[in-house]
């Protein structure tokens, strides 16, 4: 069956929109323990959230610039790696956003039932 291209494109765009907001919470949730970019990507993928690297790594820098993450360089196996983890502000915001997410998810569940 041939899919309607308009439907495909709209689904892609609208899907991206609600995914974009969720990504910040997903990243904050995994960075309560220190991780570097690639290990974070794998951690997210293992829990079912695939995210392309070209999106994830710039997002880490933006969250750091907003004060939600802090980072440090470390030399491992001869390769420098940048490790990230949530700052105090990021930690607090993670709690707030997680509560918002749960409440939204419950509401959406009721709506979609």
């Amino acid at each position: 069956m041939v899919e309607n291209p308009q439907r495909v494109s709209l689904r892609e765009n609208l899907g991206l929109e609600f995914r974009r907001g969720a990504l910040v919470l997903a990243v904050l949730s995994q960075l309560r323990q220190e991780q570097y970019g690639y290990s974070l990507k794998k951690a997210l993928a293992e829990r079912g959230l695939e995210i392309d690297e070209g999106t994830l790594y710039p997002l880490l820098r933006r969250l750091e610039a907003q004060g939600l993450l802090r980072s440090r360089w470390s030399l491992e196996d001869g390769r420098p790696r940048r490790y990230y983890r949530t700052s105090a502000l990021g930690e607090a915001l993670h709690g707030d956003l997680a509560a918002d997410w749960q409440s939204l998810a419950r509401a959406m569940d009721r709506l979609l039932r």
């Binding site: 970019g37 690639y38 794998k42 790594y57 390769r79």
Partner: peptide, 16 residues
């Protein structure tokens, strides 16, 4: 800074 991080991440990705 971004170049150094990207280089390291791309190498990780390749090795994996």
């Amino acid at each position: 800074d971004v170049e150094a991080e990207l280089r390291s991440l791309l190498m990780d990705s390749m090795e994996e």
